[in-house]
Each structure stands twice: as structure tokens, then as C-alpha cells.
């Protein structure tokens, strides 16, 4: 089944594009069929339907009732493997 992943940042311009690309690569390598929904943080709520995971590169304090993982390591390069493992853990459920 196709998994929907929301990738969000402040403006849906730069950092979320990079994070989204990394997640697509990761899922391809692991045989996970994924649909990326790249949006602004403010648009998360109206796009929640069917979402398996939210990855953001900005601060989010709200609980959307969906697993949320910070995509910051994709930007800083620090802790990438741990983040990849956490993403796979959610998507392989």
C-alpha cells in the first residue's frame, strides 16, 4: 500500500525539497511505495487524511495524531542514519 508522507517547512521552498528528496531515495532503496506531500507547516492540518508520517524541518509543537519526525538531520548532516531508521520504522509498520 502506498504510504503518504507529509514533508513540511516554513515556506515549502528549500529545506523541505531536500528532505523530500532524501525520503524518496530512502523509500526506493527499501522498497516502500511512498507518496510525498510537500507543503507549508500551516497547511499540514488540511492535508492530514491518509497520512502515515509527517517530517518537518521547522519547529512544530502541535500533535496532529500522526507520527512526526524532524527532518533537520537531512539539512545539517548530523544524525542522518538515526533519522532514516526512525522513518523506516514508522513506514514499515
Amino acid at each position: 500500500m502506498k504510504k503518504k508522507v507529509i514533508v513540511a517547512c516554513g515556506g515549502a521552498v528549500a529545506t523541505s525539497t531536500i528532505a523530500a528528496n532524501k525520503i524518496v531515495e530512502l523509500c526506493k532503496e527499501n522498497g516502500i511505495d511512498v507518496e510525498i506531500c510537500q507543503i507549508r507547516i500551516s497547511e499540514i492540518e488540511s492535508n492530514l487524511e491518509g497520512t502515515s508520517l509527517i517530517v518537518t524541518t521547522s519547529k512544530v509543537k502541535r500533535d496532529y495524531g500522526v507520527p512526526l519526525i524532524t527532518g533537520m538531520p537531512f539539512i545539517s548532516g548530523i544524525g542522518v542514519e538515526k533519522t532514516q531508521a526512525a522513518i523506516l520504522d514508522v513506514l514499515k509498520r
Binding site: 528549500a14 531536500i18 518537518t56 521547522s58 519547529k59 533537520m72
Partner: peptide, 29 residues
């Protein structure tokens, strides 16, 4: 980035003018 309470002392700035991130994805990466 990703916080509202953690600071960092910055001396190098890469300011981006982005029109279409997908077109310039390689460059951003």
C-alpha cells in the same frame, strides 16, 4: 533551524534566492 530557543553563533552566511527548488535541487544539496 527547527527550534525557537536554541541559538548558534554564526559567522558564515549562505543566502539563497530560490525560484524553483526542484530545478535547483542538485545545487541546494
Amino acid at each position: 533551524m527547527g527550534t525557537d530557543d536554541e541559538t548558534v553563533e554564526v559567522q558564515v552566511i549562505f543566502m539563497l534566492a530560490v525560484i524553483n527548488a526542484n530545478e535547483h535541487l542538485d545545487q541546494l544539496q
